[in-house]
Nucleic acid binder design. Structure first.
Length: 878
RNA sequence: AGGCGCGUAGCUCAGUUGGUUAGAGCGCAUCCCUCACACGGAUGAGGCCCGCGGUUCGAGUCCGCGCGCGCCUACCA
């Protein structure tokens, strides 16, 4: 029996239990138990180089609420922690922080150590990929500590013995294994093709990482010649791509241009002869209705080019600058090579933006064709609202650059992937539609290669021909037993390191996989797929994937792809989607908007329990405005739990001291039976809600009934429990108080784990069962032995009369202790019968003087049980 | 432009399969230090349930059409 503290100090309580939970190890997964006794969470690995903000606290709390319920219903919980330290954000951060850059061709230097002050140096140090990865690990370890501190502070019941990082050996092995498995299944290929390309990061990006941004563009009206006489006016926003024009297209039904189909146009400046072709995608309403197709301005250009069989005129390089070209030679034929070359040379080396204005000057100055009058640019450029594709982390528009990339075949499998989505339960259910729309709208295979350094390398080499050219058609793949490999430092099977990059030898694939190629495997990473089949069987498919709804198209989708391709399975049975935290202006909180709230101050000011309460109030999938008022409510609830528990346990202690603790069989008073009946309903409803992952509905019903318990039941039963003798009435009251508190603490434990654990420890902790968090979830069957109340509405009738008495005293500006001289209660028989058995409790709680009550038959006001008249005593005795 | 979601008290949100008089908390007002709690308690005021039509004995709830907000997707010449 521990001392019951007088006041609620959340800092002390929380520190104590954080340490105790770790010492107990109650959140450990037990690998010996079978799959069906286990609840498996596919924990989101946060991007460790990102910032911590309340959005994290919000969604991770949602997982923890579900997990804590599952633990209490007896499940063996597998709730690991992963870190996403792989990929561009970390690479950038490490470069800036340590002043280093990765040069994958350098050999590994085992003695090299990162210099923490390197970021201040002027000269950038180049290091090998392995050294770079080690440096990243050093930096991310710090970031991970910050997250871990926050998670522990918040009381997340993670199993800290189960951790992974997406760049560690294990994750690289699983990622490469996945790649090789997909090679074997024919689901992966590499091809040189125009790819969405970020010119600053100098890497390919996937469809899912692209976002549209509105932009103010300019329409340039350009005169094109028509072979055999005449001219065309073409509106374009990208005049700098004029040299890459391979055709001119108009809609087949467009009568203005029908006579020209089959003829050729001559481009200004370059003098290229290009076909005039009918194409469905041309919109007669837009611009002049006729447009130039370039290699490559946008997705339509790429698609049209693929179907056309025309040559590529690649004018934009990987750095976004205009490439040199020999005008007059294939693929740049010209009717006036000299003029064309002059024009093009003026652009070479310029970034696209500057090239645009430069060519506009040229076109405005002249640019017309031999024998023509006037400039090719007609009038002033006209502003137009455009929507341009950007890499989500990028600052300049994407270009389409032909490069060799690895792709996973997803376009061929839309139907199967939609079917997989149907097998998974989405919470809330309408989120499934988002998944379906994304799958239906796919128009590219999944590009998984990135021209970066900090990532999982492809376990691939190529034979080098006698002429020094790599044989991309027949890659050399690593042996699965050798994984993880780095082809830049490891040697392919059957070759010798001395043959690297030599004719007749081999060369490494220099690329790394996109982060999503690894994070799409979080279930397999956790289950050790392909490495430990027994463990895999105990963890896969998983129970839940908690995540935010904005990454359905990436994380959820890609994970479903991988699980289906590898094993024909769904990765998890449920996807549980959290909403966003919005700032008071209802904008999404994000670092880039500068409106983030950091959680640390909130946790200190209001307590972890209060912050968790705030998160728990938000229903799944629903965006929630950041409202500090809710933290206050959470803190009030915690304080109330603390104080009400003190009261109840003091009554229990007294009873134990005087006559032994009464068991549930002592519960007999009608008011107590009515309370137990209400508890049954609350337990059943909360359980039903949790089973549907609706923690917010569970919280609502538990919280409401707990407040009613404090405000009404405790007041009604107080004086009976104070009785000096060990009467049946007192025994019933004390037994009910104990039962109710035991029940409420367990119902509230997932939401406010600290204060409930504190109170539980005072009297309810047992030797083999020290924590409320491993105590069994309450069931209505626990109180089967307690009889049902004789009448319905007993509790409500008592509350109504008590409220009327309190109201009268409040209106009279008297203390609630003030005696009532006369209490008139009028109502129909049904209600009087419900009230009768608890009348004594009500009169005691209302301090009604003996004999002062008059009960009579009659109608009650609408919506109420009784008409109540209260006459207060003239004065307060003593 | 299509799809999904949302619109309820000043604010943040509940509102099950349609069913008497639409709920909670915060905030506000008035009052009360009573032996669990002043980090508290009691009581109260406050709603054209976005608008217009429809179905129904009955609509916050179902259907249609609008309006506003958010997100997803598509528009990139």
């Amino acid at each position: 029996m521990s001392e019951i503290p007088n006041t609620y100090q959340h800092h002390e309580i929380e520190d104590k239990w954080r340490q105790q939970w770790q010492a107990w190890g109650i959140y450990r997964w037990d690998p010996s138990l079978p799959r069906d006794a286990t609840f498996v969470v596919d924990t989101p690995p946060p991007t460790v180089s990102g910032s911590l903000h309340v959005g994290h606290v919000f969604s991770y709390t949602h997982q923890d609420l579900i997990v804590r319920y599952q633990r209490m219903i007896g499940k063996n919980i597998a709730y690991p922690m992963g870190w996403d330290d792989n990929g561009l954000p970390t690479e950038r951060r490490v470069q800036n922080l340590l002043g280093i850059r990765c040069n994958p061709t350098l050999p590994y230097d085992p003695d090299w150590r990162p210099d923490p002050s390197g970021g201040k140096r002027k000269d950038i140090e180049e290091v090998s990929r392995r050294n770079f990865i080690e440096a990243c690990a050093v930096v991310t370890a710090e970031d991970e500590k910050a997250f871990e501190h926050l998670w522990r502070h918040l009381g997340l019941s993670l199993d800290w013995s189960e951790q992974y990082a997406t760049i560690d050996d294990h994750c690289r092995r699983i990622s490469q294994l996945s790649f090789l498995d997909l090679v074997e299944r024919g689901e992966v290929y590499n091809v040189e093709s125009p790819t969405m390309w970020d010119i600053d990061f100098k890497t390919a990006v996937a469809q899912a990482e692209v976002e549209d941004r509105p932009r103010q563009g300019l329409f340039y009206d350009l005169r094109f010649g028509v072979e055999g006489g005449g001219e065309l006016l073409i509106a374009t926003t990208r005049p700098e791509l004029l040299g890459a024009c391979i055709a001119v297209v108009a809609h087949p039904d467009d009568e203005r241009y029908q006579p020209l189909f089959g003829k050729h146009a001559i481009t200004p400046l370059y003098g290229a002869r290009v076909p005039i072709v009918a194409a469905e995608h041309a919109d007669p309403e837009k611009g002049t209705g006729i447009l130039m197709v370039c290699t490559f301005g946008d997705v339509m250009d790429v698609e049209w080019w693929k179907a056309s069989g025309l040559p590529v005129k690649q004018l934009i390089g990987r750095d976004g600058r205009i490439l040199p070209a020999t005008i007059g030679e294939a693929p740049y034929p010209s009717v006036d090579s000299a003029a064309g070359q002059r024009a093009h040379d003026a652009l070479v080396g310029l970034p696209v933006g500057r090239a645009k204005s430069r060519i506009a000057e040229l076109l405005a100055a002249d640019g017309s064709l031999p024998g023509w009058d006037g400039p090719a640019l007609v009038g002033e450029p006209k502003p137009t609202d455009q929507i341009v594709k950007f890499y989500e982390k990028g600052d300049r528009p994407l270009e389409f650059v032909p490069t060799r990339q690895w792709f996973i075949r997803i376009l061929d499998h839309k139907a199967e992937l939609l079917a997989q989505g149907e097998k998974i339960q989405w919470h809330p259910a309408h989120m499934k539609t988002r998944y379906a729309h994304w799958v239906e709208g796919l128009n590219q295979d999944w590009c998984i290669s990135r021209q970066r350094y900090f990532g999982v390398p492809f376990p691939v080499w190529y034979r080098v021909g006698e002429g020094g050219e790599p044989d991309f058609a027949r890659p050399l793949y690593a042996d699965t037993a050798s994984l993880p490999v780095d082809p830049l430092t490891d040697t392919p099977p059957g070759f010798d390191e001395a043959q690297r990059d030599l004719p007749g030898g081999f060369t490494a694939d220099p690329d790394v996989m996109d982060t999503w190629a690894t994070s799409s495997l979080t279930p397999q990473i956790q289950s050790h797929w392909g490495v430990d089949p027994e463990r895999h069987r105990r963890l896969f498919p998983m129970d839940i994937r908690p995540q935010a709804h904005d990454i359905i198209r990436t994380w959820a989708f890609y994970t479903i792809v991988k699980a289906w391709m590898h094993e024909g399975e769904i990765p998890w049975y449920h996807v549980v989607l959290s909403g966003w935290i919005l700032d008071p202006d209802r904008k999404k909180m994000s670092k880039s908007k500068g409106n983030v709230v950091t959680p640390d101050d909130l946790l200190v000011e209001y307590s972890s329990d209060a912050v968790r309460y705030w998160a728990a109030r938000a229903r799944l999938g629903t965006d929630t405005a950041f409202d500090p008022g809710v933290f206050k409510i959470g803190k009030r609830l915690s304080t109330k739990i603390f104080n009400a528990s003190r009261f109840v346990l003091m009554q229990l202690d007294r009873a134990v001291g005087e006559g032994g603790m009464p068991g549930v069989d002592a519960i007999a008073d009608p008011l107590d039976l009515a309370l137990v009946e209400r508890l049954r309903g609350v337990v059943d409803q909360a359980t039903r809600s949790f089973e549907a992952f609706d923690y917010a509905a569970a919280l609502q019903v538990v919280e409401d009934s707990f407040w009613s318990f404090c405000d009404h039941y405790l007041e009604l039963v107080k004086l009976r429990s104070y009785a000096d003798e060990d009467t049946p009435g007192r025994r019933s009251a004390v037994a009910t108080l104990g039962l109710a508190l035991r029940t409420f603490l367990r119902l509230l434990a997932p939401f406010v784990p600290f204060v409930t654990e504190e109170v539980w420890s005072w009297r309810f902790a047992a030797a083999g069962q020290p924590s409320v968090h491993t105590a069994p979830w309450p069931r209505s069957a626990e109180v089967e032995a307690v009889p049902r109340p004789e009448h319905d509405g007993t509790y409500e009738a008592a509350v109504e009369v008590l409220t009327a008495i309190r109201g009268a005293k409040t209106v009279a500006q008297k203390s609630l202790r003030w005696p009532v001289a006369r209490l008139g209660i009028r109502g129909p028989e049904r209600h009087r019968e419900a009230l009768g058995p608890v009348l004594e409790d009500v009169l005691r709680a209302g301090n009604v003087e003996p004999g002062g009550v008059v009960i009579e038959d009659g109608p009650s006001p609408e919506g109420e049980h009784f008409a109540v008249e209260v006459e207060l005593a003239a004065e307060m005795p003593g």
